[in-house]
Design a protein around this nucleic acid. Sequence first.
DNA 1: CTCTAAATAGAAATCATTTCTATTTATACT
DNA 2: AGTATAAATAGAAATGATTTCTATTTAGAG
Lengths: 138, 138
Amino acid sequence: MESYLQNLKDNCLKITPRRKAVIDIFVSNGSRMGPYDVYGKLKKRLSTIGLPTVYRILSELKDIGILVQSISEDRQLRYSLCTLPDVHHHHFTCRKCSKIEEVEFCNFKGVSRFIEKKFNAKVEAHQVQIEGLCSECK
Amino acid sequence: MESYLQNLKDNCLKITPRRKAVIDIFVSNGSRMGPYDVYGKLKKRLSTIGLPTVYRILSELKDIGILVQSISEDRQLRYSLCTLPDVHHHHFTCRKCSKIEEVEFCNFKGVSRFIEKKFNAKVEAHQVQIEGLCSECK
DNA sequence: CTCTAAATAGAAATCATTTCTATTTATACT
DNA sequence: AGTATAAATAGAAATGATTTCTATTTAGAG
Ligand SMILES: [Mn+2]
Ligand SMILES: [Mn+2]
Ligand SMILES: [Zn+2]
Ligand SMILES: [Zn+2]
C-alpha cells in the first residue's frame, strides 16, 4: 500500500481519501471491476462520492501503472490491479468471479515473425485477453 | 460474392440491396470499418439508408460469419471481412490504413498450458489483437 | 399477382462516459 | 499552527455511440 501512495506522490497526485479507498478496494479484492462496481463499494465507505470522480481516479491510476484497463464482453471499461507494470505480460480473467492472474509467459515472437515474413509487415503491438475459470471456480 | 449471398440464404436472411451493398463495400475495400464509415459509403450508393439499418446488417453479417467484430482503440465497433470463419486464426490490422491480414498461425497452446499448470485454472478462450504497419504503409 | 413475414427509415430512447463549474481540500510554505 | 493556492471533488448537465420502437416498404414463396 505504501508503494502505491509513493507512486501517487511521484506523479504529483495528491493522496486523498477517495484515491486511497479506490486502491484499497482493488488490493483487498483482486478482481476485475468496472467504474460502477467500484462506485458501489465506495459508497459503503465514504459519505459522498461522485461517479465522475470514480471514472477520473480509475483513469489516473491506469496512467501511473497501478491499474490496467481492459474492455469487457459488453464493451465497457474494466480495471484490475497490475503488480508488474514494467514487465511485458498478459492477464487471465476468471469468467465466473473476475479474478485476475498475471501471466508472465509470452511466446508471441513466433507469431510476430510469421506475420512479418508472410505479409512483409511490421508488427508493433499485440494485446491478448485470456479467459477461463480460476482454480476456485472450475 | 455468390457465396456470401448463399450464406445469407442459408441463414434465412433475405438478399436486399442494403445487405449486398454492405458486403460489396467490405469486399472491394478489405479494411476495418466502423458503422459510420460504412454508412458514409452506403449513402453514396443508395438513395436512402438509415444508420440503425447499418448497425443491424453489420451485426447480422457477423452472426453468420461473414464479418468479424472488433473494438477500436477508442472502444467503438469495428468490422472486417473474415474469409476463414471456420478456422481458428487471428487478425493483423494496419495502424495507418486499417487493412486486415488473416493470420493462420497461432501458438497459444504454450501459454495455455503455462497458465493451467501454474494457476491450476482452465483456459477457455483467447483473443489476440495484432497491430502494426502493412507492407504498403511501413 | 398476392400474401406475409422480414427488412427498413426515421424518430426517439438508452446509458456509459465525459465535461462543466462552483465548492472543498491536500499540501507547500510561512 | 495558520494561510495560500493549485488540485480534487460533487452534482448537474452534456455527449455520442448504440439500441429500441413503430409505421411503412419489400423480398420471396406460392
Ligand atoms: Mn499485470
Ligand atoms: Mn478472419
Ligand atoms: Zn505478449
Ligand atoms: Zn489463437
